[in-house]
Nucleic acid binder design. Structure first.
Length: 221
DNA sequence: GCGACAG
DNA sequence: ATCTTGTCGC
């Protein structure tokens, strides 16, 4: 089993591999939302592919799994990523970008779940957290307003208001993307609610499967 | 020593 | 994360 010390060492080793710029001609057609729902003795990792233009769900997979790694702030990926990767492997559609429920480089070692997922898969990724890891001033009141998310005097992300009158979400670079592009994508994926449709869909699928419905087998569509 | 601490 | 329906308000 991975120890906390080993996990931290791995993050420090992989963090330099994060690419904070977009590939040439980056124009994602399919974004996949990743989220994990917890049961009493297991968890369900959900991956839902959404057409970026229409927001229609084009593919989805849920995998029931178990973890041995506890929740440790800063080591979130070691708890959820293994199961999420299994779900990603079972997708029929190959996504252009990962939308993770958590932080990217807005992390103590600049290697949160979204960055870890991006580096491991080689895919562009963005982190969208509901809680900030860092400091920020409240963004303006309108949809699209944002302020820098700062940690140790370094801008690591943005507090982004996706809807007027709701708390901001925290967007950060995961891998192979920049902050402007990540912000634009998150806004596009969040036309109606605070969270992107990708994470909403993955969250719903995950808890639906976790709650009962299907047993051990994967759930597709 | 004390508070913070993604999900 | 999870325990949890209806209800108050714009």
């Amino acid at each position: 089993m991975t120890t906390v010390e080993e996990a931290v060492a791995l993050q420090e080793e992989l963090a330099p591999q994060v690419i904070r710029t977009v590939p040439d001609g980056f124009s994602p057609k399919v974004a996949v939302g990743l989220d994990v729902a917890y049961g009493s003795d297991d968890l369900v990792a959900a991956a839902v592919c959404v057409d970026v233009a229409t927001l229609e769900i084009v593919d989805s997979v849920a995998v029931r799994d178990v973890t041995d790694f506890p929740y440790v702030p800063g080591l979130f990926a070691f708890r959820e990523l293994p199961s999420l990767l299994k779900a990603l492997d079972r997708l029929k559609v190959v996504p252009d970008v990962l939308v993770c429920d958590g932080q990217g480089i807005a992390h103590p070692r600049r290697f949160g779940l979204a960055s870890h997922a991006g580096v491991v898969t080689g895919l562009p990724s963005v982190g969208v957290g509901k809680q900030a890891l860092g400091h920020y001033d409240p963004p303006g009141p309108g949809r699209g307003d944002w302020t820098p998310l700062v940690d140790n005097d370094e801008v690591v992300g943005r507090a982004l208001r996706t809807q007027a009158g709701v708390k901001p979400v925290f967007v950060s670079i995961g891998h192979k993307i920049d902050l402007d592009t990540a912000t634009e994508l998150v806004l596009r994926l969040s036309p109606k609610y605070r969270l992107p449709e990708t994470t909403r869909a993955a969250d719903q699928l995950g808890r639906r499967v976790s709650a009962g419905g299907v047993g051990v087998q994967d759930v597709t569509d």
